[in-house]
């Protein structure tokens, strides 16, 4: 599609004002994690919990880490209704521990429209092609949520693709449903915002030593969603002045796997994840952020189209759309 058509498209959308705010990444009420439901703690160990030690293993295995990065490029105010559309870009990719490098990167630009607004063509700005799709809700949060959801779907597709190729996949964040489409994938949750466990078990979690994990437990979030296996793992022990959450992560595995397989994965995760952590000089989220994850995000961000160019072109195109003839 030529730029002339793109200008027409903007005119049809009655797209007027554009604004952006780089400090605003996403509304705070959008959370990755679903609320806690019922937790079964006697999946691996019946009765009293004890920390489980893991043996160190070589990390150069057929393991990929999958993650995505996103950016909001612009908001468009559509007509006089106060409804808006969102232009965003995300890149998902995979880092192979075996090869020590990023082996796949896919980027996608999208224009998220409020429900009821439809366009057929992609919007081309410079070299970026924004694919249109409708959000579930017309609110700003609704647009964001749909945008993030779209990226998560791409991440899940990528995770599935690698798991089908025989890789163990580590995905950043909680596991995405449906599990039937994720294969052998571990969810890597680095922000411990809430406890899934009662006080008795939680004290075990906080006292985990480096490389130790809790027994596997099962989380049931809601009636509609399948349960998932989970365990806590200590990547690095906190110093006396640091929070007991420091260096603590939670891992998730799909319920579709056998418990024995999950146990192996849990042991494996404890055997190498504490040894590939990032450092505080590298990442503000160290040590929970893994070094390869940091690297992957860096390389994914390098795929973004140049933002200044996109915004300048968009501004010009909107001006052209309303040019007096």
């Amino acid at each position: 599609m030529s730029e002339i058509l793109a200008v027409d498209l903007l005119k049809n959308l009655q797209a007027h004002q554009i604004w952006w705010d780089d400090s605003l990444e996403e509304p705070v009420n959008i959370r990755d994690e679903t609320p806690p439901g019922e937790v079964e703690t006697d999946v691996e160990i019946k009765g009293e919990w004890i920390p489980i030690k893991t043996d160190r293993v070589d990390y150069r295995k057929k393991v990929v880490i999958v993650d995505g990065v996103r950016r909001i490029d612009a908001h468009l105010i559509l007509g006089g209704t106060g409804r808006s559309a969102l232009l965003g870009e995300f890149v998902v990719g995979a880092f192979s521990l075996e090869e020590g490098k990023v082996i796949k990167r896919i980027n996608e630009c999208v224009i998220v429209l409020p429900p009821g607004t439809h366009i057929k063509e992609t919007l081309i700005i410079g070299k970026a092609e924004y694919i249109p799709f409708s959000a579930g809700k017309a609110t700003e949060e609704g647009l964001y949520s749909s945008f993030i959801q779209r990226m998560r779907e791409k991440e899940r597709e990528l995770a599935y693709e690698f798991s089908q190729k025989g890789y163990i996949v580590i995905a950043d964040g909680p596991l995405q449903v449906p599990f039937s489409e994720v294969g052998v994938t571990l969810g890597f949750v680095k922000s411990i915002r809430r406890s899934y466990l009662g006080e008795r078990h939680w004290s075990i979690v906080l006292n985990l030593k480096k490389g130790e994990r809790t027994p596997i437990f099962l989380i049931r979030t809601s009636e509609n969603l399948p349960p998932k296996y989970s365990w806590y793992l200590r990547l690095k022990e906190p110093k006396y002045f640091e929070s007991p959450f420091f260096g603590l992560v939670r891992l998730e595995a799909p319920y579709t796997l056998e418990l024995k397989e999950v146990q192996e994965l849990a042991q494996f995760s404890g055997g190498f994840l504490p040894y590939i952590i990032s450092s505080s000089t590298l990442s503000s989220r160290a040590p929970e952020n893994l070094a390869p994850l940091e690297s992957l995000e860096k390389r994914l961000r390098a795929m973004f189209h140049p933002i200044d160019h996109i915004r300048a072109t968009l501004r010009r195109m909107i001006a052209q759309a309303y040019e007096e003839v």
Partner: peptide, 15 residues
């Protein structure tokens, strides 16, 4: 950082 370069040599960082 040099640390990243070291991670790269260990296969933990891509560049």
């Amino acid at each position: 950082t040099n640390e990243q370069a070291r991670f790269h040599s260990q296969g933990l960082f891509d560049a």
